[in-house]
Design a protein around this nucleic acid. Structure first.
Lengths: 251, 251
DNA sequence: TTCGATTTGTTCGTATGTATT
DNA sequence: TAATACATACGAACAAATCGA
């Protein structure tokens, strides 16, 4: 495709920004899937009719945003949620002594239904759109620590059922990515201390007058569109929520 | 100073990493103070005997880490804690409706004493080192929302007393920076839901059986050394803690 | 094992554009 | 207007890592 970038772009972005937008579009469209390599810098330079330096600058930003991963001598790859490095990026519960451990997730309930007002708002859905609701308990050291309720638009996950959900390998975000091509690029969480509702307390094996951490998370994919809403209840008697601003390992 | 970087560095970092280290050292040593401009890229290139491109790459990383701020046509400046953009970077309490507001801080208590075990550990202090302890209440919309206890090594803030603390203009981090040359580069926070102690409950005007958000923060300066430990109690009845991972405005 | 092709990483240089003073 | 400083873009050369022949 002979698409010279220089001319014709309605918004007068710098070239490297246009390249970045094109790459992001390709990624969102699934032209290159998670784990796969994108074309080499030289080839992209030919394709977009810009110099390698310009390509590099575009890729630099995508790498900084954890969308791409570079490997010297191999290529540049679409980031996946299966790499150890990134597993803790979206999981912030740690032991009070600072110990990090990946949780064991057990499915409690898998249902579908019309979206609530909150779900409509957070996910940008039409009134009454169908959502899947998935409840889980997350165990650390064998004990329940987090109670999750995940809400996702049913339309985005056409054939997802309880069986497929159970049969996944790896994390839930890994499932979204591997099976539906939806990558979590950013999350926003709002935390509060609350008395847990009966159901959460029961799952967490605490009383309803034990303070618990309520976390409302919205996950975003390409173009910053929200696609998952998640409410978590955390028993913080032996664990804490770690917010590290910011260990940007680029140092 | 004729210090060619190319030779003589014991660790074989790339040139731009060496430049970055030198710049960081200069910043830590106060060679360029917050708000001031560092030398132009051209001049730095001469000084370190490297090309402008290499200087730019070093500065790029420092900008990404919010240590420096570039302004086209003007220069590159040492970041300050007084800019509106950065004020919310370390303050995460927002209204339940998402509204952001800067708190009004009122000093409750200003004392000094020997460090507790926890303070020793978090701040890397010797046994019994002197610390300053400062209690504040943070008000939003005129009502108390956060109760703070700040602990800092007294040795770092030689002449800081209650009067000087009260007389500051701007934020507490701005005071550290303007008066003592200590810049907060990174913070790490650990959150839990707890019943507040009597003192916190009283200040926040809630009962001790109201769940509150307990935040333990450690602030780090250059070379990642901790210098402030802060325990906050937040009334999350009308407010929440916002963790945004991550709006990197570089997009 | 060695070698060569490929790919990213680093560094240099140059030219030009844009914002500020 | 002119000088200065950062921003963008191009090109070239070599280094370092990877991989397959």
């Amino acid at each position: 495709m002979a698409d010279t970038l220089a001319a014709g772009s309605l918004t007068f972005n710098p070239l490297y920004k246009e390249v970045k937008i094109r790459l992001t579009r390709g990624l969102a469209a699934g032209e290159w899937k998670p784990g796969e390599a994108i074309p080499s810098e030289a080839r992209l330079g030919e394709r977009f009719n810009v110099s390698i330096g310009t390509i590099r600058k575009a890729i630099d930003e995508l790498v900084a945003e954890r969308i791409l991963v570079r490997q010297q001598g191999r290529g540049t790859f679409v980031a996946t949620h299966t790499e150890d490095r990134t597993l803790f990026y979206f999981f912030h519960i740690v032991g009070k002594d600072g110990s990090r451990e990946l949780p064991v997730i057990e499915l409690l309930s898998f249902k579908s239904g019309p979206a609530t007002t909150v779900e409509e708002k957070r996910l940008g859905l039409a009134r009454g759109a169908a959502v899947l609701r998935i409840q889980n308990v997350l165990k650390l050291g064998g004990k329940p620590v987090v109670f999750d309720e995940i809400s996702v638009p049913a339309a985005l996950f056409p054939d997802l059922d309880e069986e497929a959900f159970r049969a996944r390998e790896g994390t839930i975000y890994g499932l979204y990515q591997a099976r539906y091509g939806i990558s979590v690029l950013r999350i926003s969480e709002r935390l509060a201390a609350r008395h847990p509702p009966a159901r959460a307390a029961s799952v967490l094996d605490i009383t309803t007058d034990t303070p618990a951490l309520a976390i409302k998370r919205v996950a975003y994919t390409y173009d910053d569109s929200p696609f998952e809403y998640r409410v978590s209840w955390v028993n913080t008697e032996r664990h804490e929520y770690l917010s590290d601003l910011w260990k940007n390992d680029g140092a």
